[in-house]
Nucleic acid binder design. Sequence first.
DNA 1: GCGCTAATTGGACTACAGTCCGGTTATGCC
DNA 2: GGCATAACCGGACTGTAGTCCAATTAGCGC
Lengths: 195, 195
Amino acid sequence: MLTLRTSPPKERADAARNRAVVLAAAAALFREHGVESVSMDAIAAAAGVGKGTLFRRFGDKAGLATALLDQQERALQEAILFGAAPLGPGEPDAAPTPAERLRAFTNAYLDYVLTHLDLVRMSETASPGARYRIGAYRFWHRHVSLLLAGRSDPEADAHALLAALAADHLHAVVADLGEARVRQAALRLADALTT
Amino acid sequence: MLTLRTSPPKERADAARNRAVVLAAAAALFREHGVESVSMDAIAAAAGVGKGTLFRRFGDKAGLATALLDQQERALQEAILFGAAPLGPGEPDAAPTPAERLRAFTNAYLDYVLTHLDLVRMSETASPGARYRIGAYRFWHRHVSLLLAGRSDPEADAHALLAALAADHLHAVVADLGEARVRQAALRLADALTT
DNA sequence: GCGCTAATTGGACTACAGTCCGGTTATGCC
DNA sequence: GGCATAACCGGACTGTAGTCCAATTAGCGC
């Protein structure tokens, strides 16, 4: 019999089972008590799994949050790489301008982060610099840099835009000004960088 | 005999003495071992003081870092409020434009943060949202907002500029691109907001 | 100088993140 | 199916941030 392999490092059946149980338990606890106030001990207990297993599989609390977000993060990344315009590259004969794509990215990214604000915040602020270490940041940065190609300093400007989209920043600023104004400001910033 | 009082809540002599000893010990340990790897226990021990005292006086590690920065933070704030142009308001007959002042603020703030990057980073990232809770952030935000008066949304744009000047962000981006490019990008952003 | 009162002190205590390693179990080969 | 091996498991352990309260001590009016 031929079995499908998703990737070279094969995951043992019990490990896969535990991973699923842990993620489900974590999601339930987070939903019920809020991301901040759930301890890793509690998650391990709820999943019927030892602490060592938790940390072995997910590294730390940020890694657990990242794993929970993985699905939707990939969806956004696929839409950016292969999806319809203006977020994606679209068809060759009707390609969106970089400025249009940057606006679309800003909107879509805000949708994503604001929908999962607590989880993203946890994944970005669990330890100082965490945001810049996870692979996702590199993806967003590369995408924005490419859209800014040819301007003064695409890489530096991309970092600046992403700074305004950091989860901890959004958390504080949305509480202060409301989502609408923050979104408009981010879009103005995106426009300014492509002007 | 007339004694000078700095403020209504009078500080007891022993408390003042301990505060000074603690700050000196913390500064020494930070200088020697780096901000990250010094524990509050170590600071208390080095200062010959109990842990309770440390937390009572400074709240947490971020508060301790803030106290150490207090001197220089005040100096910058004074220069902004009362100093010479273009950072300060200057003389009535030769006032700088808001755009000039915003560039000057960006430069001066970067000087300040980059000089004390580890301490500022600790004060901003000790706990999620810490940056937005300390009074200093409100000061910078108000200042930038005032300089942007009359434009689309001064408060939202001020938050966006300050996001690019966050210590954790600067730490990561300076490591990636170097100080010069980051500074130029921040200045371009300041210019864009006043255009 | 002297006692009254309230702030201050400091170390024992809790809770949590993250590490470690002896025992267990799945997997692949024969 | 049976066995060798490598990966996995889980709970005991460590180090640290932050809390709490009984004992102390400074400031103040007399």
